[in-house]
Amino acid sequence: MTVEALMKQLFPAGHAVQIQGDILTGSAMTPKGTIAVMGTANHLAVGVETALALADFVLKVVREWPGRPILMLVDTQGQRLSKRDELLGINGYLAHLVKCLEMARLRGHRLLSLVYGEAVSGGFLSFGLMADEIHALPDAKVRVMNLPAMARITKLPLAMLEELSSASPSFAPGVENFLQLGGVCSIWSDMLSEQLANALGRQAAGDQRRQQGLQRLGRKLAHQVSQSVTACGPGDG
């Protein structure tokens, strides 16, 4: 779905979202009031400029509209792969965006994500994955790496990875796999504006992804392991 078509469905009451260089920023009307909207389009690879522009927007929202919910629309093929970005410290720029979003959350801004295109690795980590709730359209493409590339790098047979993918959601790309692992909260198939209003109406409840991964039997260990660690007082080591 194009971002324009998506926003038409998400915000029937209208929006003022600008698209500049595949970066989205602006606001939209919802039944729960005005929200801030930010994100990426056309599978944009997140480089230093992208991260800085999005962080700039988050800082502006926090300054000018305290408490306004922020919806992140995600379509990124990942981080930009270039020597120049590395030279400038791209990880620091992405971390800056992440910290700005956390600061917004700490100051009471609700953070929601909707993956409507691709959501890959570092690009996804730097904003979409920071939300209180991460939702996705059914045809969203969420991944770290496709199976042929994974087979090449891990030197494992592709047929073996394909076979295992039917048994475990941890290997193959796909929004259903991320749903099962708890990385995606729910899939929005239709009634997008209603889904958004419902999500805006819920309270943030901390990072629920490990519990969801366990309930959906996609990540059976993460919740238990982290709980075991937090249960260890200084004397129990």
Partner: peptide, 10 residues
């Protein structure tokens, strides 16, 4: 990469 999806969420 051998458990890529779980690793990214982690």
């Amino acid at each position: 990469l051998h458990e890529a999806n779980a690793g990214l969420i982690a």
